[in-house]
Design a protein around this nucleic acid. Structure first.
Lengths: 180, 180
DNA sequence: TCTCGCATGTAACGTGTTACATGATTCC
DNA sequence: GGAATCATGTAACACGTTACATGCGAGA
């Protein structure tokens, strides 16, 4: 499921412009998938070329034409096909945890700040999810997705609070000279 | 913190060969970072060119020479520098959740199987982490990392079990015809 | 005035994966 | 006999990001 297919899927739920699709990627979806214009627009063009989308081009004053994409029946089939495949494994890259592996090389104050910051970030995300999902009168699926994010972030915050001492006890005490 | 820098960091903790570094990426680290030979070996070569690593080439019978890399003092400095930067945000791409967005397009049986599989996968990972961290007589940092993984996976399993009905109630009932 | 939202797109670049190439040894 | 471990590497490819290009209207 690359961005191209996800765009196709989103359009299966509701016709939209590239701009709107980008907005969708900034909603609850943003917590487990990212996409930029640089990948969305080319994807839409390619899907259209392939006959999986049609494009209704609406002229506008003083603005680029709005291009509303809809899925063709070939597109629906193609997407249903893609859905049948077993989803690939999650890809996670956490720079935070990568840095934590080197806790013993960091000055204690710096380490603590990093952990504080990370906890704050997760709290912000949780608050953000609350706003998103409360505001939209979300359906079951959206509720599920948002809840998933909250559950995982909450667990992370809890864990960090309960176990940060494991790292902080290892951090570099005293002088700031880290490399011997 | 790209793979190149992570290799440098790992070598800061302990000299190693490319092969051994790959093994490290298959340990607890694997739950939040991935790397293949195709990125590790070129990274090591480049770091060596740049004078951040030295390479002790040990001839072996009937096998490619073993190349044991160590960090130079320039390398240590460069890595400490990199550690000072605020770590970038986590990148997550969950195909599973992406597919779940389209729960209503999936036959109920298929959806349930996907969720079952996912729960099993997470359980396996938790068991795997237990083995890894129990076996190695891990230090504080390793304990922390493993615990983090367990905490997050456990939360995910719990959430899936408690809330799968939200999706399953939306899934396609009756006929298997998904695209209208 | 200045930023934000609307609206589209491209080109260069970075980063990493996959598959391939090679090959002995050891364990089952 | 076949798989796994040890051990290195490359080349082609896929995929996506970043920065740039354009430009008006509305609201603060």
């Amino acid at each position: 499921m690359d961005i191209r297919m996800l765009c196709l899927g989103l359009l299966t739920l509701k016709e939209a412009t590239g701009y709107e699709i980008k907005k969708t990627f900034e909603g609850p979806l943003s917590h487990f998938y990212e996409a930029s214009y640089g990948s969305i627009y080319p994807a839409l063009n390619k899907l259209t070329e392939e006959g999986l989308l049609t494009c209704d081009q609406q002229a506008q004053d003083k603005r680029p034409d709005k291009k509303v994409y809809s899925v063709t029946s070939a597109g629906k089939l193609a997407f249903m096909d893609a859905l049948q495949k077993h989803p690939g494994r999650d890809r996670i890259r956490s720079e935070f945890l990568a840095v934590m592996m080197f806790a013993r090389l960091l000055p204690a104050g710096h380490l603590s700040r990093l952990i504080d910051d990370r906890i704050d970030e997760y709290r912000d995300r949780i608050a953000h999810i609350d706003r998103e999902c409360a505001g939209v009168m979300a359906g079951e699926v959206e509720t599920f997705i948002c809840g998933y994010g909250k559950a995982v972030y909450s667990a992370a915050v809890q864990y960090l609070e309960d176990n940060r001492h494991l790292l902080e006890s290892e951090a570099l005490m005293g002088s700031t000279r880290a490399a011997e």
